[in-house]
Nucleic acid binder design. Structure first.
Lengths: 224, 224
DNA sequence: ACTGTTTCTTTAGGTATACTTTAGAATAAT
DNA sequence: ATTATTCTAAAGTATACCTAAAGAAACAGT
């Protein structure tokens, strides 16, 4: 689950990104409306969190432009308590929810999760492949009554694999999707995480395996 | 993978059904909106391809009705180039993607596959010739229930051959296409790979052969 | 037909490459 | 302060790829 966060207060932006990353989201932060629009148009996001008051291009104009292009990515916008009229305006412009500042971390997370669930009602909380389950709320893999918790990175890798079982996912794709385009992490980082995931899959005797295809990537397959 | 195809032009409908069946989908064709809705409501489909302009009930109404019933089957709709406003309308109504006419066969297949994959389904991407299958998702060749993994180079050579069966492909073409124009690899490299591919084809008793035509190149043919 | 030449076929082996795994250091979370 | 996570480093392992060389088939010239 990849989110775009747009907020001009860089201190708040940093902590927003942090909050989401701690909750196993992948979050990209931008600090102005123009960047927000540009990033949103790539359609790489499952959701967008948008501050309404930003220098240059404001949040409402950003939503309008996004929707004009036919992009339906769910948008939550953040408003100061006083800006009541703007909330209505924002919803009219195509936002899916708003959250008045100040807000609690847990409320932010809950509302964003709800928004994603509402908009993508096909995105289930538990993803299953060959009786192996990945739980999106507890970040656990389970098979039968055995289960293992996954760390954030392990979860993100596992999520990509189980969403497209029987499909090769390039190592580069893991890196660009999880760490970001401009990231300079080495492929070996992925290798190490895969190794650790395999250990956990083994420990619950999961009937799946992560096979690697040389010069291509990793693929999740059922084990008979 | 079962698809529902709705298209009022019966000639186009027939060829659409044919295109999908050739690519290992099961495709049911209907030629009007009312039938499309009735079939869609059975929820037997992994995906729906819907022409937007149809006599009687149009495509957008069909999508609206389907979504109203809480059915989330992914829908791709087909539009004429000019019907720009309808695309937005269609996406608003709950379609997952649209494809402007005219479109190429490969683009249609790619987009439908992408759409199905987004909805968390396994969509095998298979090229077939004389019951020999090349799986683009797993880099495997298979015949019956026997299969063999291919290495990256072997896969690329095999892909070129099976995409144009019964056509001679020059050794030079393999080199420039797979290794690049400016590559200095020797033709013998291709020979070696072809030899290894033949070994794998034999090991699964594939009913095809890669024949060499002197002073010309290689050709993939059916073996009776 | 015979021989030499060319052109592919196949085998085998070395090397570079690309992953696996382990351990531990740096970083972050509790 | 302690624990967990993430990344780095390094040693180990497998194999894809190419090279080289010997064998087989097709062809040309005599």
């Amino acid at each position: 689950m990849r989110l775009l966060i747009a907020e001009d207060d860089t201190r708040l932006l940093k902590s927003l990104v942090h909050i989401f990353e701690r909750s196993h989201f992948i979050a990209d932060g931008v600090s102005n409306g123009t960047d927000a629009l540009e990033y949103a148009l790539t359609e790489n996001y499952d959701g967008i969190v948008l501050d309404i008051m930003m220098p240059g291009m404001d949040g409402i104009s950003v939503i309008e432009e996004i929707r004009k292009k036919g992009i339906t990515t769910p948008v939550m916008f953040l408003t100061a308590k006083t800006e009541v009229y703007q909330r209505v305006e924002g919803l009219d412009a195509g936002a899916d929810d708003y959250l008045p500042k100040p807000f609690s971390t847990s409320e932010l997370l809950a509302r964003v999760r709800a928004m994603l669930r509402r908009k993508n009602n096909y995105v289930p909380d538990i993803i299953e492949f060959n009786t192996l389950c990945l739980n999106r709320s507890t970040y656990e893999i389970s098979f039968g009554n055995a289960s293992q918790p996954l760390s954030a990175k392990e979860f993100q890798i596992m999520e990509m694999l189980i969403q497209q079982p029987n499909y090769i996912i390039q190592t580069e794709n893991f890196i660009s999707h999880i760490w970001g385009w401009d990231s300079d992490v080495d492929a070996s980082v992925v290798w190490v995480h895969i190794s650790n995931i395999r250990k956990k899959l083994n420990s619950i005797k999961a009937p799946v395996e992560i096979r690697f295809v040389r010069n291509a990537g990793y693929i999740m397959e059922a084990v008979t």
